[in-house]
Simulated assay, not measured.
Amino acid sequence: MARIPTPPQEPQDEPETYVGLGAEAAEDQARARGWSTVRAVPPGAMITMEYLAGRLNFEVADGVVRRSWKG
């Protein structure tokens, strides 16, 4: 029988710390802290909502992170 895969661990990092940063600086910081995927979207964009461990999402307006969440 096949083993059940272990999901990757997420960095011990709070998404709120990215709010207010410039989008490029926030992405660089997130990758340096261990996030495997960083997704930046404009406000109101339609996105998939499945949870992906190791992904950090940014809502970016005028080049600044307005909201950030895991998955």
Rank of each mutant, 00 (worst) to 15 (best):
R3H: 11
I4Q: 00
T6M: 06
T6R: 08
T6E: 12
P7E: 02
P11H: 07
P11I: 09
Q12L: 12
Q12F: 07
D13A: 10
D13S: 12
E14C: 02
E14L: 10
P15H: 08
E16W: 06
E16R: 09
T17K: 13
Y18P: 13
Y18A: 09
V19Q: 05
V19E: 03
G20T: 00
G22N: 15
G22S: 15
A23Q: 14
E24R: 14
A25D: 14
A25H: 04
E27T: 14
E27M: 15
E27S: 15
D28G: 08
D28L: 15
Q29N: 03
A30L: 04
A30M: 10
G34P: 10
S36C: 07
V38Y: 03
P43Q: 06
P43L: 03
P43H: 01
T48V: 10
M49Y: 06
G54R: 09
R55T: 14
L56Q: 15
L56W: 13
L56S: 12
F58D: 02
F58Q: 02
E59N: 06
E59D: 10
A61L: 13
A61T: 09
D62P: 05
G63L: 06
G63V: 05
R66Y: 02
S68N: 01
W69E: 00
W69Y: 08
G71C: 01
G71N: 06
G71T: 00
G71Y: 01
